[in-house]
């Protein structure tokens, strides 16, 4: 599903250059439930953005479903994002002047689905998220947990094969965190590859595979095998 080979990424400013990802190699199978952990600045969000084709990389290779994601035009990138990937962000990123239903339905607008049809689909998703009564409320009227569930519904609406969540519980209290993680876990169980960037251990523990980043490199990863977490060093993985 996802194959990264020696991925490098640097950010340049006038004064300094910042080598953020230093040769990441990673394979994620379809349907996996993965979290990426690491301290601030370890490169986890950059990695997620590259996986989500929101950002480019300098060298190495990124294959998504067997296709090399390199030198894509804006239009192609938009197409892959729309067809393959659903995003969930820490700050929800809902459009403030659209109600919950319209926010959820928006990705289908770009797939030229009629307003009527996309509203029906969006309503079904909101219903699944337990937010049917909140469909016509504006984001400002929703709680953090509700907003994030709206965002997840929006990520789901175009039937993506991958969900990329960047600190999805970062802005939520512990009770709501549990609720949101339940939703994501449920989605993963339906076969959607789910990758969550987090620095909360409780969140990472809900996933089956935890990738630990440090200074732009994979330090080690932990896999839940038969209910037990086993640790593998990155080197060991490649050996």
């Amino acid at each position: 599903m996802i194959d990264l080979k020696q991925l490098h990424k640097s950010y340049y400013t006038e004064a300094i250059s910042l080598h953020v990802l230093k040769g990441i190699s990673l394979h994620i199978d379809s349907g996996e439930y993965v979290s990426v952990m690491g301290a601030s600045g370890s490169g986890k969000s950059t990695l997620l953005n590259i996986l989500g084709i929101l950002d480019t990389y300098d060298s190495g290779e990124y294959y998504l479903d067997g296709t090399l994601m390199k030198n894509l035009s804006e239009k192609q990138a938009a197409h892959y994002r729309n067809e393959m990937i659903g995003f969930v962000f820490q700050s929800f990123n809902l459009i403030g002047f659209k109600n919950a239903l319209e926010n959820v339905a928006l990705p289908l607008y770009y797939k030229n689905v009629s307003r009527k049809k996309r509203n029906i689909i969006a309503m079904e998703l909101l219903d699944k998220m337990g937010l049917k009564e909140w469909a016509y409320h504006m984001p400002s009227e929703l709680s953090g947990g509700q907003k994030q569930r709206v965002a997840i519904a929006r990520a789901m609406i175009s039937n993506p094969r991958i969900i990329l969540a960047d600190e999805p519980t970062g802005a939520l209290d512990s009770q709501t965190t549990v609720e949101v993680m339940d939703v994501l876990t449920h989605l993963n169980k339906q076969g959607i590859t789910t990758i969550i960037v987090t620095h909360e251990k409780s969140v990472a523990d809900a996933t089956n595979r935890i990738i630990h980043l440090k200074d732009g490199m994979i330090e080690y990863e932990t896999r839940k095998e038969n209910g037990v977490h086993n640790t593998y060093t990155y080197a060991a993985q490649n050996l």
Binding site: A78, N93, L106
Partner: peptide, 14 residues
């Protein structure tokens, strides 16, 4: 920000 969100969820440049 709104335009960024739209692009992230798949709005083509055109």
């Amino acid at each position: 920000r709104e335009i960024g969100i739209r692009k992230a969820i798949g709005a083509p440049p055109s």
